[in-house]
């Protein structure tokens, strides 16, 4: 590398300074604010807000919606990745585009489309009522909206890895008579393990924090269709700032956990790729 001159050193530390200032102001300070505001009135108030019945119910609903979104998107992601990378067929490009579509849709619109599909003004609404199925302003709607906003998160991580690897090993195994699921379990999955986990983490992160889409479809029934982010909103709008930040601190904790998991997965994945280029 060329010599480090005095001026280039100044530039270096100036740019580092600007970056650190940005990260501290924009990213670190909001995190610290959540924690300090949550404990503003002492630990007892914090504990009361966190163990409040509505908070606990919201926590379990968030967990339920997140888990279901991860499961459905896993089934979808693995199927789509297999179908799109192992076979050639017409319409493949369109299919790929359609899968990516949900991330470009505003969360509010994501909620709106489920309201239109299953709500009162939908042609199938009388049918749903006859069967006594509630989707809008109920848990199924929340789950559907959550699946929508995280839709491509897992397939998007798997497809590039499978494409880069090619299909030689799978073809050989198939020619030797291995069954489809055996091929997947023994040959394909070990290679996409880290990418898959990475996708799951991203999916879980977005699912637990989804606000706009869920906000449209939930109906905000406390204790019934209120997720943690929605509960934060209700408390904040009622000027109950300390409880709002206390509930938010649960989500901060989950977010930090997700960031650590993400770095570990990325690190392990990179290490593995270096061992077998």
């Amino acid at each position: 590398m060329y010599k480090e001159t005095k001026s280039s050193k100044a530039v270096k530390w100036f740019l580092i300074g600007v970056s650190v200032l940005f990260v501290v102001l924009m990213l670190l300070l909001p995190l610290i604010t959540v924690i300090t505001e949550a404990f503003k009135q002492g630990f007892a108030v914090y504990e009361k807000a966190v163990t409040d019945n509505y908070t606990v119910k919201a926590f379990w609903l968030t967990l339920e919606a997140t888990a279901l979104a991860v499961v459905i998107n896993t089934v979808f992601g693995l199927s789509a990745a297999w179908s799109l990378t192992k076979f050639h067929f017409r319409g493949k490009k369109i299919l790929t585009t359609l899968i990516d579509l949900p991330v470009t849709v505003s969360p509010i619109i994501a909620g709106l489309i489920f309201l239109l599909t299953f709500g009162r003004q939908s042609p199938i609404f009388p049918l749903l009522q006859d069967w006594d199925v509630k989707i809008v302003f109920a848990v199924p709607g929340i789950v559907l909206a959550t699946i929508f906003v995280t839709f491509p998160f897992i397939s998007r991580e798997l497809i590039p890895v499978l494409e880069a690897r090619g299909n030689d090993e799978e073809e050989a195994a198939a020619l030797m008579g291995a069954k489809g699921f055996t091929i997947f379990r023994k040959i394909t999955f070990p290679h996409i393990k880290w990418a898959f986990l990475y996708g799951v983490v991203l999916c879980a992160a977005r699912a637990m924090g989804e606000f706009g889409a869920v906000s449209v479809i939930s109906g905000h029934l406390r204790g019934k269709t209120n997720t943690l982010p929605l509960h934060v909103e209700i408390l904040f709008n009622e000027f109950q700032y300390v409880p709002a930040f206390a509930v938010a601190s649960i989500l901060v904790l989950l977010a930090i956990f997700i960031l650590i998991a993400r770095s570990l997965i990325e690190y392990n994945g990179k290490k593995k790729n270096k061992v077998e280029p």
Binding site: V23, L27, A205, G209, V232, L251, A255
Partner: peptide
Amino acid sequence: GMIELPFALPTAVAGIA
């Protein structure tokens, strides 16, 4: 690692903070 925070932190939490 912090750069990734906006992806992991729920938007409502970021909003109130």
